[in-house]
């Protein structure tokens, strides 16, 4: 593991906004998960047979779609065979992410085992109701119609402890660098606008998804890209950890540009290598959206900060 750490994180009081952002993220995480008793994950729709059934019904739904709408679906969907139960399971997983299907799936007419279909429709209505009641869904950003506040709340919400901790480590380390370099105002602006750009990137890549996006990673990507552009020619401290053996962890001074292959190219490669419609739980497009705005603002900052050379 290697992460940029330009500032000394022990003198944290010098970075009030970074600290505030970190605490805010922790507070909202606790708020979301305090006393939460989610029965969503145990829903039979998300179990093997439920997924297969959903896939079968979604297959029939696809058959009724006009060609231009069907063409919008991922390429692999066109290769799915209705008699293959494994493929129907995969299709079911995709169906649960398709907002247009999920919004009115129980109103369509299907052929097949009518007893199962009738039970499935009841379960779907229940599932959707519980899903939408979740605080994480309400705070998250998705294609479903929600208030404009979701664009901000998603930036401070996280889905689990690992998600929160990994984001906060980066936020603390790179946030301090940005705050020391450009000040608290720029850091706040970058965090918010980076998050907004990340949201746009996410919605652009997943225009009809039901799964909400949460997390500060788009904002952090913006901070990384900003720092990379603003301090392009500097060597900064990176912390590395290979193993706890002596010499295999510590600090190393490397060019700031190393952030590009380490984080930004990885996001791009991951985005391109993920089968469409079935992401692995990471919104790479949001990272890239945040990175783009961060890089642009970084260039502007660099241009403004460069002192004009006047002939004596």
């Amino acid at each position: 593991m290697i992460i940029p750490c330009p500032e000394d994180f022990r003198s944290y009081l010098r970075y009030p906004l970074t600290l505030t952002l970190v605490l805010l993220n922790v507070f909202i995480f606790i708020l979301i998960f305090s006393g939460m008793n989610s029965s969503i994950s145990s829903s039979s729709l998300l179990q093997g047979e439920g997924m297969t059934l959903t896939g079968r019904l979604y297959y029939q739904y696809l058959q009724g779609l006009p060609p231009e709408e069907l063409f919008e679906k991922p390429e692999w969907i066109h290769q799915v065979k209705s008699y293959n139960t494994e493929q129907m399971g995969v299709l079911g997983a995709y169906a649960l992410r398709d907002a247009r299907f999920m919004a009115q799936a129980e109103t369509f007419t299907y052929r097949g085992d009518e007893i199962q279909i009738s039970q499935w429709k009841d379960q779907l209505v229940q599932f959707r109701k519980k899903y939408q009641q979740q605080l994480l869904y309400r705070f998250g950003l998705s294609s479903a119609e929600k208030g404009p506040l979701a664009w901000i709340t998603y930036q401070f919400s996280h889905s689990n402890w690992i998600h929160l901790l990994s984001n906060l480590v980066f936020l603390a380390l790179i946030g301090m660098g940005v705050e020391a370099l450009a000040g608290s105002g720029v850091l706040l602006g970058l965090y918010i606008f980076g998050g907004l750009a990340g949201g746009l990137g996410f919605l652009f890549s997943d225009a009809h998804g039901t799964v909400p996006m949460v997390g500060a990673s788009a904002s952090i990507s913006a901070l990384l890209a900003f720092y990379c552009m603003a301090e392009m020619r500097r060597r900064v401290r990176f912390l590395y950890f290979v193993s706890p053996m002596p010499g295999q962890y510590g600090a190393i001074y490397l060019p700031t540009l190393l952030i590009v292959p380490l984080f930004l190219v990885v996001d791009l490669a991951s985005l391109w290598s993920t089968p469409e419609g079935l992401g692995g739980g990471v919104a790479y497009a949001a990272h890239l959206g945040g990175s783009l705005i961060g890089a642009l603002l970084g260039m502007v900052y660099r241009w403004k900060a460069t002192p004009a050379v006047t002939p004596s």
Binding site: Q79, E86, P261, V265, S270, S273, T274, P275
Partner: peptide
């Protein structure tokens, strides 16, 4: 990351093959 970027499309195709079978 550079190599991943080059092979991303091939990896995506491979993942799709195994996704379906």
């Amino acid at each position: 990351p550079m190599i991943s970027l080059f092979i991303a499309s091939l990896v995506r195709k491979t993942k799709t093959y195994f996704l379906l079978n």
